[in-house]
Design a protein around this nucleic acid. Sequence first.
DNA 1: ATAAATACGACTGATCCGGTCTTATATTAC
DNA 2: GTAATATAAGACCGGATCAGTCGTATTTAT
Lengths: 134, 134
Amino acid sequence: MLQLSKKVEYALIALRHMAMNSHGHVFTAKEIAVKYNISYELLAKVLQKLTKSGVVVSLQGMHGGYTLVKRPDQVQISYIINVIEEEKPTIAECYAEGGEDCSLFDACTIRKPLEKVQHNLNLLFEKTTLEQII
Amino acid sequence: MLQLSKKVEYALIALRHMAMNSHGHVFTAKEIAVKYNISYELLAKVLQKLTKSGVVVSLQGMHGGYTLVKRPDQVQISYIINVIEEEKPTIAECYAEGGEDCSLFDACTIRKPLEKVQHNLNLLFEKTTLEQII
DNA sequence: ATAAATACGACTGATCCGGTCTTATATTAC
DNA sequence: GTAATATAAGACCGGATCAGTCGTATTTAT
Ligand code: SF4
Ligand code: SF4
């Protein structure tokens, strides 16, 4: 309940790892997975998503790997979650994109008031960047 | 991901319903379930938990039901979640009570920094009370 | 006695999620 | 040009969680 998924945690751990060390350095999925005891295949998929979203760039082939290309203070946690989960973090399905198919939608009396909570959650995850977790 | 469970939503809807109407009034699980299109049995279990935690009191037998006994501004959402889920809302298992059995615990580098986010989430759910969603 | 309500635990089906496996492709070293 | 090493991408699986249901006991007003 309310918890970040493992994939998001792995993304944050990997990104933090990259941010901590010299910028421009290339890290392989394997070395990060080993260092932090993360499933290699899973981490690889996470890094692939981060690549597609432009947070890191990848180099294929031998001596390949991933490089962080955004400034840590420009990488919002909300963005990472959005990239990995492929949806924004919401406290109820009706706040997600096109999520008006809750059967209670019309009768629901808490949707409107909870928008404030949702908004505050957005602010929290937006103001928290990679830099904060270094 | 990050979403409140249906049970928590049902609790909030029911509590709001009670708070809106005259204090001291007795509401049955059935009438609330019908009004908001919620599974009766599920709502009943939710109200039972709220009873055990002292947010409402129950009257058994005919003409029984539930009555809100706390002032809306005294009922924190964090408390409701805690009661219904039987655990505090956390963004990672390691922040839950006795939740140090994450296999990454030692190697994890984001646990410490994310405490701040957890703390802010706590504040958000604590400062949000039933009164805010009326 | 009967009806109407809460109390409580067992059960079920669907969905989600962490993790694995397989195959393809790209790049470098030799 | 072949072997080695890396990313890319998608299929697959087993366990856990969760919304919802059911059955049964108990309480209380009429
Ligand atoms: S409409 Fe109400 S019940 Fe449905 S998801 Fe939104 S808040 Fe929850
Ligand atoms: S220790 Fe790290 S990986 Fe484990 S639950 Fe806490 S934050 Fe997540």
